[in-house]
Design a protein around this nucleic acid. Structure first.
Lengths: 344, 344
DNA sequence: TGAGCGGCTGAAACCGGTTACAAAGAAAGG
DNA sequence: CCTTTCTTTGTAACCGGTTTCAGCCGCTCA
């Protein structure tokens, strides 16, 4: 590894000048600048990031907090891969890297019953590593951990969890609009008795999808009897159970909007068990557009989230704050209705 | 952030002593050690990682190289999430974090037609950040980039790609054994005309699955006519196309072993199109046990990989080398036959 | 001609740790 | 009792950058 002093010596200038060439090029005379740049290129000089972070108290790293919640061992993020792709490419474009933080004491914390690894530990790590900010990924755990992050004062961007704090914001899909699209699509197909299987009440996207469903139904002049709203937990079995209870109603719905594809798949299974033909006797619409949606039988109509776009938006938001900008408003990315056989 | 000098002053000792308390505790007298430990605990002192990395030339970070190959835009890793969970938890247990490296110039590289981001750039970053080693994840690109990493001399562990180098090894499933299990299972179900749809020839796991298939067939005394071996690319469409060609044979197979679940799903689709009943007229076995496998109709018999286990093994291997240990031999994790309706 | 100013430059301090080295004190050996 | 050795400690150099500050130079303007 060539160091800045070697470059300085070779160019016959001081280390300060070399440093300036890379950080404030305009303050260095053209001749010296060009010499330094040429020599640096020839030797493939790259400043040592540890030294730079130490001196500037800034590193080109953004922390990723993604703790798999052991209380929900089966939890899987529905679109982690695309999210990471989006995050990574947007950060990369600004020269940042993503550090997947791990609480080394996680085993110990688990032993004492702490649910999500201690936010304090993460905040600490953020300082020690001079991270610019954090991206928080929903791990299916309670939101309390997220608020602790949001209030720490560090730049934080949460994905699919609504948080607020001095420098905290979040990114999610336009859940209200997506749900409304689902309703309009079903109404357009002639349905009037439309039920919904929601996500956990405490979850912001779930609540928004329910809101969107309700207001769109009202907009269409359709009533939503209380028994047409069944709460699930985003997982498949809950969708299956909810659908069973809907089918058992004296006046069962002819269509159901599910707040996640996983639950929609569960609903399809329940319908099949009950001998209901989809979409003729029951139309099903999901949310997410996970890979599975196109492959179940019948393929699932769903609201596609802009998965990579959410990652990009999260990266942009955190970088804005890192660079001293105002806290961006929460971002709601548009969803797209993908019509497949389950509602056609 | 409390610094080591503050601790030293408060304890009435030198900074060297404080440092030693954390790094070589036994060289410090019991009394001083206990004082320092108490004060450090009270102030929640944690050494600054940038400073430590600068001084020791070691950071507690392992790099993750996972470049989405733009020549294969649809490529998705079949089990990224589980892999990351395994990696993260095993690294975490040793106090390491995972740095997702991104080549900032990736857009530029793409413009000039460079395929995978330049290994040199990654190696450089490794040095600049004082990373201990690298974990390489197959991105569906050619293996040449991997060999460049392997020869760099850095501790490298590849997942599902066979590499060799002074400090490079790899982790994958026992593909030979898995394929053999598939064959024995099908033979046990009475099949004798068994075909296989392989992965890309250049891919080590694909080649191993084919080897395992061939030798198990030989072990059962069954012939494998050349037209019973069709090459795919792990993706679904290739599986579908391969199955079509197998069905069109004068003497079509009664069972097919596919080197990936994705291709097996394609094979199921082709069978359905051809009006073949699965498993009665055609048995299908896949490989991976992706989530989809349990959900297609009929559910897919497959060889489950120990996905998180592969992550754990990769982490262990890289840490062994980081700590100066011998280069571990390639690890082949056992697979498990999961029998579902597609072969029963 | 001299004061004032702006542009460049280098010396040196600093970021917060680790560690080589020397010294002091205690213990062991002759 | 003196020498040797071991243990413990502090001083100071060092890791490789950034940045403050002061000084030098050349120019403009009075």
């Amino acid at each position: 590894m060539t160091t800045i002093r070697e470059i300085a010596q070779l160019c016959g200038v001081s280390v300060a000048t070399v440093s300036r060439v890379f950080n404030q090029p305009l303050t260095v005379s053209k001749e010296k600048r060009e010499v330094v740049e040429r020599v640096a290129r020839e030797l493939d000089y790259r400043p040592n990031e540890s030294a730079r972070a130490l001196a500037t108290k800034r590193s080109g790293l953004i922390g990723l907090v993604w703790d798999t919640d052991h209380r929900r061992p089966g939890w899987r993020h529905p679109y982690l891969q695309e999210l990471l792709i989006g995050l990574k490419s947007a950060l990369s474009a600004h020269g940042y890297h993503l550090l997947m933080l791990a609480t080394s004491g996680s085993a110990a914390l688990r032993a004492v019953g702490a649910s999500l690894a201690d936010p304090v530990a993460y905040v600490n790590m953020t300082r020690r590593h001079h991270l610019g900010g954090l991206v928080l990924i929903d791990s299916g755990s309670d939101a309390s951990a997220f608020t602790a992050f949001a209030q720490s004062g560090l730049p934080c961007v949460a994905v699919d969890v609504d948080v607020d704090g001095p420098r905290a914001t979040y990114v999610t899909s336009d859940n209200v609009g997506g749900a409304a699209m689902a309703v309009r699509h079903l109404v357009g197909a002639g349905h009037r008795r439309i039920a919904t299987i929601t996500g956990p009440r405490a979850n912001r996207p779930a609540a928004d999808r329910l809101d969107g469903f309700r207001s769109a139904m009202a907009g269409e002049g359709l009533a939503v009897p209380p028994e047409y709203v069944v709460e699930g937990d985003f997982y498949r079995p809950s969708g299956q159970a909810a659908m069973r209870s809907l089918i058992a109603l004296p006046e069962p719905p002819t269509a159901v909007f599910c707040a996640s594809d996983e639950m929609a798949v569960g609903a399809l299974l329940a319908a099949r068990h009950a001998g209901l033909r989809v979409p003729d006797e029951l139309a099903v619409v999901g949310f997410d557009d996970i890979e599975l949606a196109a492959l179940v039988d019948p393929p699932l109509t769903t609201l596609a989230q802009d998965k990579a776009g959410i990652g990009v938006a999260a990266a942009r938001a955190v970088l804005t704050m890192v660079h001293g900008g105002e806290k961006p408003a929460p971002a709601f990315l548009p969803t797209k209705l993908v019509v497949r056989a389950s509602s056609r």
